[in-house]
Amino acid sequence: MRLYLDHLEEWAGEEPEYHLLSAETADPPLLTFTYRGRFGPNTIAGFTYGLSLVSHPEWRLARPELFIAMASDKEEWVLAAGHVAGAWRGEKRYRTGDIFDLGTPISPEESEMSALLLFLVTDLDPDFARVELPDATVVLAQLYPLYESEVALVEQQGPAEFLSTENVDFHDPRRPPLHS
């Protein structure tokens, strides 16, 4: 874990806030690391740790960890990424285009968004998003919050086209829902 955390701290220039999301005795543990203000005032960025420590038959060349960045100071966004990492680890592949419906608003104070789309990292340098560790290569994948009504739109358009919608800030928890 230390090498992964050193990699993140090199990017952030500081130590993160962290949350242990699994039981203390869980093996492997599941944690989130939170950095505030890296993308401007009142922004939050978070990374998971523990998803890549489980096995999946399709993870031959690299193992995923999750990243989220939001124009918000609410920890719920990072905790939602941790929930996605923990709820299906060992079961799902966590591949580009996967949608994780949480069934309830992620940050009800700010938004009704209740799902997360996993896609390529757009907010970090691609070289940074690939972490070479002694026992595995970890690749960061980014989570983009969605409204429940947008899930069908993503499935119809495909995630790349959806995320390419002009004049939409996918980091803004208060953005209006997109419609077809």
Rank of each mutant, 00 (worst) to 15 (best):
L116Y: 03
V131E: 07
S52R: 12
D125G: 06
L146S: 07
G37L: 02
M70A: 08
R174I: 01
P28W: 02
F67I: 07
E14C: 11
E9R: 15
W77D: 00
A160R: 15
R38E: 06
A152C: 03
R2S: 13
F67W: 12
L3M: 13
K92E: 14
Y35F: 15
R36V: 12
Q156M: 13
F47W: 08
L146M: 07
L66D: 01
W59L: 06
L178F: 00
A81D: 07
L61G: 05
P176Q: 05
L116Q: 06
V139A: 11
T34A: 13
F67V: 07
V54H: 13
V78G: 00
G37A: 10
H83D: 13
E132C: 10
P16Y: 14
P145F: 00
E17A: 06
H7S: 09
W11Y: 12
D123Q: 15
E15S: 15
E17D: 10
E58T: 12
H171G: 10
S149V: 12
L51G: 03
E166F: 00
I68Y: 10
N42T: 08
D73Y: 01
S114H: 00
D123G: 14
D125R: 07
W59N: 04
L66I: 06
H83I: 13
F128N: 07
A85C: 09
S52N: 08
L116S: 05
A152M: 01
F47E: 05
S149C: 12
P29S: 15
F170I: 01
I44L: 12
V154H: 05
E65Q: 11
L51C: 04
A152D: 13
E65M: 09
E150D: 00
A129F: 10
Y49V: 00
A23G: 14
D125M: 06
S114E: 02
H56M: 06
E112D: 11
E10L: 15
Y144V: 14
L53W: 05
D73W: 02
F67D: 03
G37N: 08
A152F: 04
S72N: 01
F170M: 04
D73A: 10
E110Q: 05
L146I: 12
A45I: 07
P173T: 01
G40R: 01
T104Q: 12
E65P: 11
I68W: 05
F170E: 02
L116I: 11
L118S: 12
E10W: 14
S72W: 00
K74R: 15
R174K: 04
F170K: 01
D127W: 10
M113F: 02
T165Y: 03
K74Q: 11
A81E: 05
L178R: 08
L31I: 10
E75K: 13
L116F: 04
D73K: 05
Q142D: 09
F128P: 02
F128I: 08
L124N: 10
P105G: 02
H7D: 05
L66S: 02
S164P: 00
L117N: 03
D125H: 14
R89A: 04
E15F: 08
V78S: 00
N167Q: 12
P64Y: 03
E132G: 08
S72E: 02
D169G: 02
F128V: 09
F170P: 00
H7M: 08
P105T: 04
